[in-house]
Amino acid sequence: MPELIAPTAELHQAWLEAHHEWGPGPHEDGFGLDAEDEVESGPGFAAWVARLADEPDPARALCTFRWIVEDGRVLGGIALRHRDDDFTRRAGHIGYGIRPSARRRGRASWALGRVLDLARTAGRTRVLLVCEAGNHASARTIERQGGIRESGERGPEWRYWIDLAGRAPEPDGHRHPPGSG
């Protein structure tokens, strides 16, 4: 059973395995990794993890990061951006990524459902998610959680809104539109 945990320096090797499986590039959304972060060494990794956990109060935090972990393996990351700034308007309130070997098993949808609960608890009534145009797997994940795609294409991305008002989590951990059972 996967867990959603706060980043920890204790999972350095497990995180590096996931990171190396992805390969180079900006496709690890959800981890909060910046180009200047040095994560290969123990001290560099610990400094990066400390930066991610800088603000423990979600009401004041810029972002809440969580890792998707199962049996000691880091399967992916997911981030909840709390501000409505230019970056969030461009990248979305929630960003996530699943390492290639862990995809197509419902883990992104599971993690997104839990982070929607965090967003609701933090006072959000609606969240924006953005994925690359043509990324049908990510689009299905967002749509399963109630995402409604904005009409009209905006270049290389698809933009989805999820309304959190009046949508309580179901006991099975899935969200269903009001009145759908």
Rank of each mutant, 00 (worst) to 15 (best):
A168G: 09
G32K: 00
E153T: 06
V49E: 01
S101M: 11
G155D: 10
A133V: 10
C63E: 05
R104A: 15
R154L: 14
A91W: 08
P171N: 08
R114D: 14
V69I: 10
R51H: 07
W158H: 13
I68W: 01
D34C: 11
R154Q: 15
E36S: 15
W161C: 15
G146Q: 07
L16W: 03
A102Q: 05
T121N: 14
P171G: 13
H27S: 15
P178S: 11
E3S: 15
E70T: 04
G106N: 09
P171H: 07
I162K: 05
G23I: 05
R140M: 09
A47N: 08
R175S: 09
D85R: 01
S138C: 05
A53D: 10
H27A: 14
A91P: 00
W110H: 03
A102N: 02
G72M: 11
G179T: 01
W110Q: 02
R99T: 10
R73P: 04
H93C: 10
A9P: 03
T125M: 15
L16T: 01
A168L: 12
L16C: 08
G72H: 04
W161E: 15
G92D: 03
E170Y: 05
A53H: 00
E36G: 13
S138W: 00
R159E: 08
A79R: 01
F87C: 10
V74M: 08
W48G: 08
D85G: 09
R66W: 00
S109N: 11
R104H: 13
D54W: 01
E10V: 05
A6W: 06
T64S: 11
P169C: 06
D37K: 10
I78N: 03
L33K: 07
A119M: 06
G42H: 08
F87A: 12
T64M: 05
R73W: 11
E143G: 11
W67C: 02
D37Q: 10
R90W: 04
V69M: 06
A137T: 01
L52P: 00
A50L: 02
R154N: 14
A18N: 08
H12N: 04
F45I: 05
I68E: 00
W161T: 13
A111V: 04
R89W: 09
V130Q: 03
W161A: 15
H19D: 10
G146S: 11
G181S: 12
I5P: 01
F87K: 07
N135D: 14
M1R: 14
S180I: 03
S151M: 15
R120H: 12
L164A: 09
H19R: 12
E40G: 13
I162R: 01
I162P: 06
H19I: 07
D117W: 07
A53M: 04
L112E: 06
R103N: 07
D37N: 12
G44W: 06
R83L: 13
A6E: 14
G123V: 09
R89T: 02
D172Y: 05
Q145M: 14
R154W: 10
E21D: 15
V39Q: 04
R175E: 08
H174Q: 12
D37P: 08
